[in-house]
């Protein structure tokens, strides 16, 4: 009994550590990457290559006072940032980084991650609502409609994959794709010829789910000051920030597991955690790259994209796959 509790504690500590480390250094990578794309150096003063910058940012955020605006709903105001960070950390528990590195493998891992992912929309809603700020309110309205409309095509795509592999266990999903790049879900097969399209849809939806540019309507700086976290300072803001980056890691991990063969090598050699990390960091680089390439969409463009393009196509893909699975 005590051993299992110890296991749980170790797993949680590692998950938090991994999430925090990633959040800190992804911010650094994001700023350096943005700098390079705009042909400036980015943070380069603190430490070699600016590598101590996240530390400085962390100290700055932690030493500031957390101001709760008058008229705000205190309890919800405090809960919202925690709710942004916690689901991301919980999701880490079930993600298999390799054959053996997984804190707790579940047979409904996919379902669990999506259940917790939808909580992040909730935290944005609470943050905007409880801070009693018109910008926050507007942002939460936007973010919620965005999250709802992008979860639909995302889940339809996941259903397509679950139908093909017949499992919701993340480890088995990877196992079904082992052996080489030709087994990956990304590659069109006889039973689902539209898989690259499904990958694209899932990729776009992950961007939208993590509220990243070009879908960062929830924090549109030019219109809404800072959106849902306008009133947050100090570590309240810090937690939102870390939650965002932790969610990016989760999104990249999910794409890797569902489409890119998890910890498998493209040629079927030396499967292991290094392939998994390589794949997620390449995906994260593409997230950063996309963020600094495209301007923000409008709210209409965003909803149109989901309801008029992504949902019909993903539904079509689902039906096509269902039919072809019967045939072959």
């Amino acid at each position: 009994m005590s051993l299992t509790i110890l296991n749980v504690i170790i797993a949680v500590v590692i998950a938090i550590g991994f999430a925090a480390l990633n959040a800190a250094y992804l911010v650094w990578a994001e700023r350096r990457g943005a700098g390079r794309i705009q042909r400036r150096p980015g943070p380069n003063v603190n430490g070699p290559l600016g590598l101590l910058q996240p530390l400085a940012d962390g100290i700055k955020l932690m030493t500031k006072q957390l101001v709760i605006p008058g008229g705000a709903d205190k309890a919800l105001f405090m809960v919202a940032p925690v709710l942004a960070m916690a689901p991301a950390i919980i999701s880490f528990v079930t993600i298999p980084f390799s054959e053996s590195i997984v804190a707790h493998s579940m047979n409904i891992g996919v379902l669990m991650i999506f259940a917790f992912a939808s909580l992040s929309g909730f935290s944005i809603l609470l943050a905007g609502w409880s801070s009693r700020n018109k910008y926050g309110m507007m942002a939460s309205v936007r973010a919620v409609s965005q999250n709802i409309s992008y979860e639909v095509p995302m889940l339809i795509t996941v259903i397509t994959i679950v139908m093909m592999t017949g499992t919701m266990d993340l480890k088995e999903l990877v196992a079904a794709q082992s052996g080489g790049i030709w087994n990956w879900n990304l590659i069109p097969s006889l039973s689902s010829p539209l898989m690259p399209v499904a990958f694209l849809i899932f990729f776009i939806c992950s961007l939208a789910e993590t509220n990243r540019a070009p879908f960062d309507l929830g924090e549109a700086e030019s219109e809404l000051v800072a959106g849902f976290h306008t009133e947050y300072g100090s570590m309240g803001f810090g937690l939102f920030f870390m939650g965002e980056y932790a969610n990016i890691v989760i999104g990249a991990s999910l794409i890797t597991i569902l489409f890119l063969g998890g910890w498998g090598c493209p040629l079927g050699l030396f499967p292991g955690v290094w392939w998994f990390l390589l794949k997620i960091y390449m995906l994260i680089f593409s997230f950063i790259w996309i963020r600094w390439t495209f301007p923000r969409t409008t709210i209409y463009g965003l909803l149109n994209l989901s309801w008029k393009i992504l949902i019909p196509i993903s539904l079509f893909n689902l039906l096509l796959t269902a039919g072809l699975l019967k045939v072959f």
């Binding site: 794309i37 042909r39 790259w289 390439t293 393009i309």
Partner: peptide, 26 residues
């Protein structure tokens, strides 16, 4: 329209990718 959109997005990504490897001007 979808195809055109995707095409223009790809062109944009290509431009920033090229800029990424250019020397810093700061």
């Amino acid at each position: 329209e979808i195809f055109r959109g995707l095409q223009s997005l790809a062109i944009g990504l290509g431009i920033t990718f090229k800029e990424f490897f250019q020397p810093v001007v700061t």
